[in-house]
Design a protein around this nucleic acid. Structure first.
Lengths: 177, 177
DNA sequence: TTTACTGTACCGGCTGGACGGTCTTGTCAA
DNA sequence: TTGACAAGACCGTCCAGCCGGTACAGTAAA
């Protein structure tokens, strides 16, 4: 009963993210991921020889998707600044019911070093934003507020209401100019 | 509240936080904590009958300490607003080399519900701040930026430099008024 | 077109080791 | 002596990674 031979990798990645979100990072076993992906454990291990490799795959695909989405918004959406694009992208991400990065806790549990590429990515993004403005203070506030929003989303925090988040985003866009 | 030969509880709590920070949440075993605390596994289990209880202890003592620190700053430091006190307290927390809450990942891995009291605490704090200002937009930006700062600290992110963080804090204090 | 061979994709039982929690025994302060 | 508490051996469970198998596709000589 094997047909979709090629895209197992992506199915597995998606399954891993789902399991991590729904069952919590403590319950992210290879078996759970495999069964969720409709794949046997052996099949999973074929695609990702190690749990660490699976986490690495999650990190990489996340960073890729994010980069692509940001680029799309920054270029195609007219004369927007990158910062505005980043704000809106993050707002949309947080709007969605499923936190897109809740697998991160599992990755950290596996090995804290998986954060390194993410940190590097963020630093790079920040540098890029720095080149776009001359008010470093405002940029810092915006950048960190977005970080806060993403972090709350990550922690599945319903601390802020819908309206509050909208007000926040519009305030940020105003600061961003 | 009986006084034991030594105050093992606090030693154990501190040890658990240390192990979680240094070895990563995936390596927070009871044995590791016990050995770090200079206590046997049996002794640990005597104080915290279960790993979940240990995590709960971490959450509670963290929230207690935080509340106390905030109150101290807000009252004794003159006519400061609570928001300013919160900003400064968070800045100081992030200044310290050891993230004070890196155990949180371990708690989440054990059971995501451990976040609930923390979320409630934050919401409560936010409500309190809301009563203090009439500019909700600015408050949101400040509050979330602090959240972002704390989250970066939590993830042990050296994304921001020393100077950038200082500039951020002063910008926040300016917004807070 | 058949057969034989090779490589790819996937399966699922197994195991060694680690971990959480229990239990028995030891110890020290009052 | 007694009982609160610490010690660490021990046990059951769980899981990552391994391994021997299966199914199928492509190739190519016969």
């Amino acid at each position: 009963m094997r047909v979709p031979r090629a895209n197992s990798r992506e199915k597995i990645l998606a399954a891993a993210a789902d399991v991590a979100r729904e069952a919590g990072p403590g319950s992210l076993s290879l078996e759970a991921v495999a069964s969720r992906a409709g794949v046997s454990k052996g099949g999973l291990l074929y695609n990702f020889p190690t749990k660490a490799k699976l986490m690495q795959g999650l990190v990489e695909s996340y960073l890729n998707d994010f980069q692509k989405a940001l680029e799309t918004r920054a270029t195609e959406a007219g004369h927007e600044s990158v910062l505005s694009a980043y704000i809106k992208l993050s707002a949309d991400d947080c709007e969605r019911p499923k936190p897109s990065a809740s697998w991160m806790f599992s990755a950290i549990a596996e090995d804290p070093d998986f954060l390194t590429p993410i940190k590097a990515f963020k630093r790079q993004l920040f540098e890029r934003l720095k080149g776009e403005t001359d008010d470093l203070g405002s940029l810092l506030v915006c950048f960190l507020a977005i970080e806060g929003m993403r972090s709350m989303n990550l922690f599945d925090s319903d601390v802020l209401s819908e309206d509050e988040r909208k007000l926040l985003v519009s305030s940020l866009l105003k600061i961003a100019g």
